[in-house]
Design a protein around this nucleic acid. Sequence first.
DNA 1: TTTCATTTGTTGCGATTGCAACACTTGAAA
DNA 2: TTTCAAGTGTTGCAATCGCAACAAATGAAA
Lengths: 208, 208
Amino acid sequence: MNEKEILRLLELIKPFPRVFSKTIRKGDVVADYLEKRDRIFILEEGEADLIKFDTKGAKYIQEHYTDHDLFGEIFHAISVSGEYSVIADTRCTVTYFSLSDLSDETASHTNYPEIVGLLLSIFSSKFEQLNFHIAMLSKRTIRDRLLTYFNDLARRNYQRVFYVPMSYTQLADYLSVDRSAMMREIKNLEDEGFIDRNKYRIRLLTNI
Amino acid sequence: MNEKEILRLLELIKPFPRVFSKTIRKGDVVADYLEKRDRIFILEEGEADLIKFDTKGAKYIQEHYTDHDLFGEIFHAISVSGEYSVIADTRCTVTYFSLSDLSDETASHTNYPEIVGLLLSIFSSKFEQLNFHIAMLSKRTIRDRLLTYFNDLARRNYQRVFYVPMSYTQLADYLSVDRSAMMREIKNLEDEGFIDRNKYRIRLLTNI
DNA sequence: TTTCATTTGTTGCGATTGCAACACTTGAAA
DNA sequence: TTTCAAGTGTTGCAATCGCAACAAATGAAA
């Protein structure tokens, strides 16, 4: 996501009364995903996790957010079963607003077109992310999912060497495969000479 | 997607010079998905298919569009390999525009807030669709994918009886599973008393 | 009405995957 | 520094899936 755009958006919208900011202490709930609404949250400072509680009460970290990350109900695949919360990992400052409220409130303002432009740009990035996720999940083998994901990382890094930006447990969740099966397949890719790996540092050795 | 909103949007934006309309003859190309741009297409009349050509040249129908459907590069998971085109199935009338051009052009107009509101609403629906697709693809068995999909159809139909709105070949593609394996699993669901089926008419018999 | 391409329906088989189980490593809090 | 929860790495095994192959049904065009 473009950090400059997020900062500019914050600058433009903060003066409006229905754009809220608050500070959350470590461990506290940033946002509940109980009801599907059109709220958008911007994490200004700190770190937070999107946590899923499944039907058995077990909890999983679904996503991790840092400075200037953006989240909200409409950007997420909230599965049918289970509840979601965003929990502060450290002390957090978050700014949030309802999309429709913001639109109403800023409509007559001089900066409205710029605000809209920024929102549309942010939405485009989110569409891109979701579309990539779908394209990746449409691959039918763990190997293809890994290679699709790795190639994307390399492409966005302009290099064949990159660091996996999350834990392997989280990666397995993102790829929606069993973690142990994924580790086995990573090992296979190493053994067969497709990748070179050192913990989270990976180098692609082929042109697939 | 809300048809009323699409119609209202068309009404509002058609007068602008950089909103284009054209008629396409059956079999002709409505839009090429070669370059990723921010164009949005609204099919006003007729039917069209999103076709994928894979690396071997084989073609697949990826999606089917009818009156007042909406498509465009940003809404799609364009996989790495292969090319896409939208081909007219019958004579079509299509209206299209570049999102940024439209925003620029209408920014100073009285109807700008309403146009923006409609666009945001349309985007929200698309996010919902993509998020559902991801939630469904995150299921690891064909059975779970089918039940997730069927339950959604039933929910949106307010009934446990519904019609699968596409061919089983297309459904297998949407669920991203092998067609024969999917047919086998549908048969299993019938045999085990989870569903009742007559061609495309399905009745859910359980409360999962 | 006939033709023919497309879709549906079915099965066997081998490959891949999820699951369970366990040891080892890591890193943050006490 | 110690403790302990969380993540990593590995393996056997059974379940599921994709693939290939083919027959039957369907439906649109000639």
